[in-house]
Design a protein around this nucleic acid. Structure first.
Length: 402
RNA sequence: GGCCCUAUCGUCUAACGGUUAGGACAUCGGCUUUUCAAGCCGGUAAUCCGGGUUCGAUUCCCGGUAGGGUCACCA
């Protein structure tokens, strides 16, 4: 507070500041009158002839020079504004605190700030700041104007009313900080190449003031999702595991068959299917995760492939025979060789012979109980030989029941 | 209303004044060891309008139009 006061006194000394004697009502009336006469209200047209001594109980106003200001903006080039945009604004409020307009200039100067980067909406008030710099004899810092981030309508600044979430909510939803940084950097700035996925280090290395844009950019959630997915793919296996585990809902974690070992195995499958962490919760709700940890429940009619070649009359018997044959093929595979490549290799000739759909579909369905899931070979590898055979046997039991 | 800023596919954007106006997201279609997902290939899609300057404007200038910002004892 003493620092601001020091600068305020300096301005009073040099005739650039004076105490504002008006009451709020008086000010209000002057404004109203100007509005009725359809002309802009300017305080400087009502400067008191003999302002009182500033004792801190009245607002302190800046006595603005009335002239045109021209300046260089790093991103916008030459800008200028006429005297219409200047008025005697308040430096220190009647409660003793400085306004932003005054405080930021003093702060920046005291802290040795060299570049001021801020959004569009500050262009209009820049002449005020320039006038203050001059009055205080402070050298102008570099001024850089950034484009605004726009809401979904693509017109107005992104705000709470557009459904803009608190920044930390994005983190809670599973957006990686680095992905968010990547996304935001690309609104209103572009390094020029065709690469779009950048780490924090990339951004620091590539960033430059010259390539900041002049027009605003929309906050596009689809693109953010894509960028997040790209960053997720680039995490290490351990990081992916921790990430998936942190979003896995309790309903899944509390299942009797839940295990970290299986979680580890299905992590790549999950990462492939999500844009962000909370998508895992949706997966769980849709039953896309339960079956990894417990026996699937499904109707036996789902075991038949849509365009099945099995004769209708004895379809239950035939399908059972197919699955029995499948079991005998799988049984011949050594436990240590029970991976998706070997499994596929062994099953393929048989599936090809009787019709792929009639083998692969029921096998996948027996393992997952789902309309949609990873392919049967991948599932078999995750479950291991014993569990895979058990689930297929279960399917055969179902087929026998009337 | 005064003053100010902005303008390339739906979106984010690239293009020393000379390009079939490029890429990415989204969308649509196709492919892959017949469900998904991912991946790959391909399609649709843009220089706001009108004048200049120039041999030649997306690009430079002017004017419209449209959108935005700002006009507080808020920051």
């Amino acid at each position: 507070m003493n620092i601001y006061k020091k600068y305020a006194e300096k301005l009073i000394q040099s005739g650039f500041a004076y105490a504002d004697p008006y009451t709020e009502e008086e000010l209000e009336n002057l404004r109203k009158k100007a509005e009725e006469e359809k002309r802009p209200f300017l305080f400087r047209n009502h400067r008191p002839e003999n302002p009182p001594v500033w004792d801190g109980t009245k607002p302190l106003r800046f006595k603005t020079p009335i002239k045109t200001f021209k300046w260089q903006d790093v991103t916008r080039g030459n800008l200028e504004a006429g005297p219409e945009s200047l008025d005697d604004f308040i430096l220190i409020k009647s409660d003793g605190y400085p306004t932003y307009n005054f405080a930021h200039i003093v702060d920046d100067y005291e802290m040795g700030v060299t570049h001021i980067m801020r959004a569009d909406e500050f262009i209009s008030s820049t002449p005020k700041f320039l006038a203050l710099y001059e009055a205080l004899g402070i050298e102008r810092p570099e001024l850089v104007t950034l484009p605004p981030i726009l809401g979904k309508d693509g017109k107005k600044k992104l705000g709470k009313r557009d459904g803009a979430k608190d920044f930390l909510e994005y983190k809670d939803d599973g957006y990686l900080p680095e992905a968010m940084m990547n996304f935001l950097a690309l609104i209103g700035w572009n390094p020029g190449g065709e690469e779009e996925i950048f780490t924090k280090e990339d951004l620091i290395r590539l960033f430059n003031l010259k390539q900041i844009h002049t027009s605003g950019g929309q906050f596009n959630t689809d693109k953010l999702d894509w960028i997040n997915h790209e960053h997720l793919k680039r995490l290490s296996p351990t990081q992916k595991e921790e990430y998936v585990l942190s979003f896995l809902p309790d309903e899944i974690k509390n299942l009797k068959g839940f295990s970290l070992n299986i979680t580890k195995k299905i992590t790549p499958i999950i990462i492939e299917r999500i844009k962000k962490g909370i998508d895992i919760i949706d997966m769980a709700k849709n039953g896309e995760l339960n079956y990894f940890f417990e026996n699937p429940s499904y109707d036996k009619d789902n075991l038949f492939f849509k365009s099945s070649k099995i004769p209708v009359g004895n379809k239950y018997q035939t399908q059972s025979e197919y699955l029995n044959k499948l079991i005998s093929i799988l049984s011949e595979i050594e436990e240590k060789d029970f991976n998706k490549d070997v499994i596929k290799e062994k099953i393929w000739p048989f599936a090809d012979e009787v019709g792929r759909g009639d083998i692969l579909w029921p096998m996948r369905y027996a393992l997952s109980g789902q309309e949609k899931s990873p392919d049967p070979f991948q599932l078999a590898e995750i479950f291991g030989k014993q569990e895979t055979l058990a689930r297929i046997s279960l399917a055969i039991e179902k087929l026998k029941m009337l």
